[in-house]
Design a protein around this nucleic acid. Structure first.
Lengths: 194, 194, 194, 194
DNA sequence: CATGAATGAGGCTTCATTCAT
DNA sequence: AATGAATGAAGCCTCATTCAT
């Protein structure tokens, strides 16, 4: 019997335990929010003693921060051809499955913890630095370029909220193809130089 | 002193106390969410013993339900000329001051407690029955009329979120006049018969 | 059966419960120090739920502060004839039984929690404002009057420590009469104008 | 490379590590007391894994016992001329810097952990066997020789407490020269044959 | 033998809720 | 019917200590 069998009990492996805690935390925080998640919950999901949360992360808050840290700037998301950026963003927010975040886009999931000021700040930075900044390049940069980029971001975020959180029927049942023609029009209305 | 005076005084007090509790609860729940609000907070704001919350409402949850029950459908909102409906809705979500809800629109405030399934359900009903239904009348009712109405609702809700919760600079600083031209275009893009 | 029988179960009486907690805290803190005492211990001694400690005192620290607050300036202690003051002070520190403080003088008991800076500060104030100040009046006020008053206070405190804390045999077994002649001499050596 | 080199290196390391742990423990226990010191603190100061504390000493308590064991009776302290013994003792308690004990005399430092019965017992032994015994030789051995020796020890200990723990101003600012005349008088009052 | 991952008990504190008066 | 004292569960976190590697 190979020795890995023993070690496959997933025990005594700092990196693995930390990662399991982080995974569990991402899921719980995404689904139930910061207040709705207890350290015991997370530790239980990871099949680990709650004390390890503090050993590895210092506090519930720091675990939350690390678990909800935006992943890589999604290089592929912003890498492709410019004209397709809005479609890719919308797809990422509304249609992509994020198994690590209970299925939702991280931004949408973080809204669930927006009662905490710091979470709001992180949301603002992420929306401004990533979405608005990238979209503003498409607006032709007029005097209201940022406003239009924000308005388009608002639309995408709103779609995400209606689809993932509130669950209105039409948007929830829609496919990317269903949305495509409307996306075109809204792009034309908000993003393209007026 | 006639006995009904006493009893009516008590009755008025009881009703007044209940109302004060509801007002306080609305404010707290809107500002801090369900989890961020304690029964003692609410009772303290109403200058009332916490036990009365249970006497009058049964539980914190039931107080929440009653406090966040959607008010009347805001007759005036839907009463005016049809063409101005989207502008009125957007104004209501993004620009109106709701003193009873810590300044925010009730829908936006309820998002703060969307970790609770029942809150989500109530949000869905409100969005569908009120916003989508009313807007669908403007879409010409094509096969995707509901979808377009939802997409427009998503935009308005997203604007509310970006303005009240996340606080992105351009939308936060915008006036109704700033938004007006964009509103026109998005109406044309989503609501008017394509 | 008189109604007091029911209320003699010592329940539902805010003042009495608070007092019982305070008594239990004084005893525990005196005997085991701040760190050696848990809120559960105190509440257990008072036959009360631990949560009441926080309801009535706010925190363990505040309970400690209130429990170890110096009682009245012991009017009788400083009221009598001046020449007998040292004897009365020594008696109070070394021989008086303080049932509220596990038998020890409060100052001696507080030494057990002197790991906390605030406790040291309170001790300093008490020693300076009460003992040194009163004794300095007996020193003839020479340039080193305060020093001699402190040196005499040190002697009394040391006796208290040896008797109550360390338990050296001769002092522990001594009676006030045994100490009297030595007291006279030390008074002459330290307090009286040299 | 001969094998004993390796084993002796290890042995030296083991001894050195043990010694470093003891030094760190002495310092921490002296400064913060038993309860205020954690095993991790000590191990951290010694730059060593906390588990070694248990491997080398068995428990925190045993580490404490060993770390606070009275050092050698300080031969030099008791070696000089008899008449100067009280002055040397007082200097050792009140003015000597004990870098191994955070600056304080070990007896004073141990008072900080006097909540533990065993610490008190060790304090008693040390005071009796060392101080009282040596001082009793100066009392002329009358019937109350031990009592007078204890009373003088109490004075010294009290001075140490007021100076190092409580920090009363006059004693804290005093130099050995300031104390010298008072020392003479108290020696005459307590130690010399009456 | 040394390392460090893991643990379980216990600490302080808050909260929704119940119960005696 | 109203008050407020009391409660018990749960929350976050720390610590001494053990156990696998």
């Amino acid at each position: 019997m190979p020795p890995e069998t023993t070690s496959s009990r997933i025990k005594r492996d700092r990196a693995a335990t930390r990662a399991r805690l982080l995974d569990a935390a991402r899921l719980r925080f995404a689904r139930d929010g910061f207040d709705g998640t207890s350290v015991r919950d997370v530790a239980g999901d990871a099949a680990v003693d709650p004390a390890l949360v503090f050993r590895y992360f210092g506090s519930k808050k720091k675990l939350f921060d690390e678990a909800t840290a935006v992943p890589e700037p999604a290089a592929e998301l912003f890498g492709g051809p410019r004209e397709e950026l809005p479609a890719r963003l919308l797809g990422s927010i509304a249609f992509q499955d994020w198994p690590s975040h209970a299925g939702e886009h991280p931004l949408i999931a973080m809204l669930r913890s927006s009662g905490h000021a710091e979470t709001r700040e992180r949301l603002r930075e992420e929306v401004c630095e990533t979405y608005v900044r990238a979209l503003a390049e498409l607006t032709g940069g007029g005097p209201d370029g940022d406003l239009r980029a924000e308005l388009f971001s608002a639309w995408m975020l709103g779609i995400g909220v209606l689809r993932s959180v509130i669950g209105t029927p039409a948007i929830t049942g829609a496919t990317p193809e269903d949305l495509e023609p409307h996306l075109e029009k809204v792009i034309a209305a908000l993003l393209e130089r007026g």
